[in-house]
Amino acid sequence: MAISEMPADLLGGHRKVLAESAATGRLPDRAALDAYRAAGTRAAELGIPLRLLVDGALADGEGLPGALPALRKAVSALMEGYERAQLVAIRTEEAARREFVDDLLQGRAERLAERAEHFGLRLAESYVVAVARGLREGDQERIERDLIARFGSHNVLVAVRDGLLVCVAPATLPAAVGEFTHHVRARFPAGWRVGVGRAHRGPGGVVASYREAAQALELADGLKLKIDVVKAADLLVFPVLLRDRSAIEDLVTSVLSPLLGARGGHEPLLETLEAIFASHGNQTAAARRLGLSPRAVTYRLERIRRLTGFSPDDPTQRFTLETAVLGARLLGWPAGFSS
């Protein structure tokens, strides 16, 4: 676009304002500056480059050396109006983007495909959702800005939902989830955790992946996992277990209730079983995890065998014990059970 292609009335009266200032030495008054700001806003809305707008304003000042102070005021007002219009446009776009992400995560289907196209998203593809717990004020904007700077606004969506920072990224861009986790680790306070859903296709897939990611955080808390990043794909067995709560409660009660009467309480014995399972049956490694001697671990396992009738050394009994312990942690046994 050339200066000659700008609307003729955009800088109408500008040359006259400069000429009067050059003759009288008076700067443009408030009304004139407001008119310049309005012209700058209009130029931004018309998509006229700022460089071209300023160049046109400077061109009208040629041959009027005494008008330089007025010209500076005029250009400043033009730029102020232009920048204000851009800021409004950015905020409007951000609000629309966040509203779209919120509707997407809630599964509201109204005009999703049309709105997704506006943001450069192809909802027919597969997407992965990651969520982070531990959000503080200002974290969203900084992380969103950094992710968009690297991957582009058409590849990454960032929003806040149910107190979680949410990142939606194409399954074909696994680096985005890694980068999201990196920024969470760098900015969130201690206690943060990231949950990652599986890849699913389409708008409904985004909702499914989001729910999986959020549930992964809940499962990690219930199981007292010490890892910072939990993947739904690694925890698939647990939603299956929870689908039949009465069956799991029956298993936990039948297998573990005898531990409630143990001297010292049931918790040390549960922790011993968890350490044994995490160490793949290696009692020496389990002892290191617990800060105990191998002999103490052997003693506890013998107590468990005597009380419950189950031993982790037997493959079938080990599976029953491990399932019962996992169910106990997930359901908050014994406090979470009805008497």
Rank of each mutant, 00 (worst) to 15 (best):
L273I: 08
G40V: 05
G40K: 03
D146Q: 10
R305N: 06
A38E: 15
L321A: 01
T181M: 04
E212W: 07
V88A: 12
L225Y: 06
Y36C: 13
F277Q: 03
G327R: 00
D228L: 08
R306C: 00
A278L: 13
P268F: 01
A149I: 03
G178H: 11
L259W: 00
A116L: 06
A335D: 15
T316I: 02
D221N: 14
E62G: 05
N282L: 06
E267S: 11
R243N: 11
G202N: 08
G13N: 14
R142Y: 08
L292Q: 10
V129W: 01
R243C: 07
G152L: 09
A57P: 06
A132N: 05
P334H: 07
A214I: 04
A109W: 14
L147T: 02
P294F: 04
R295S: 13
R201F: 06
F238P: 03
A208M: 09
A175W: 04
Q317S: 12
S293D: 07
L11K: 00
E99G: 15
A74C: 11
A22I: 06
P49H: 12
P334G: 10
S4V: 10
F319L: 13
L242K: 10
N282E: 12
H118G: 03
F319Y: 12
A176L: 06
L64Y: 08
A74N: 11
F277S: 04
V196D: 00
A176P: 01
T172M: 10
R30V: 15
E212A: 06
F337M: 02
H200K: 08
S4M: 12
E45A: 15
D29H: 08
L147R: 01
V194E: 02
S293F: 03
P7E: 11
R98D: 15
L33E: 09
R185I: 06
L50I: 10
D146G: 03
Q86D: 09
R185M: 09
V129Y: 01
L164K: 02
R289M: 13
P334W: 01
T181L: 02
G281D: 12
A96Y: 10
S257W: 04
V128Y: 03
Y36S: 11
A95P: 07
A44K: 06
R97F: 12
A35L: 10
S126I: 03
H182I: 01
G134F: 02
L326C: 10
A57F: 08
A22M: 05
P203S: 12
T92G: 12
E271H: 11
A31Q: 13
A199G: 06
V129T: 09
Y127F: 14
E93A: 15
L58C: 13
K224F: 14
E179M: 11
R136S: 14
G291W: 09
G13E: 13
R187M: 13
A2E: 11
F310K: 05
D250M: 06
G222F: 05
A328E: 01
L251A: 11
I90R: 14
G309F: 01
V158M: 15
G195S: 07
V255A: 09
V54E: 13
T272W: 01
A85D: 05
R245I: 07
D244H: 08
P7W: 04
S209V: 08
G264P: 05
E218S: 14
I276L: 13
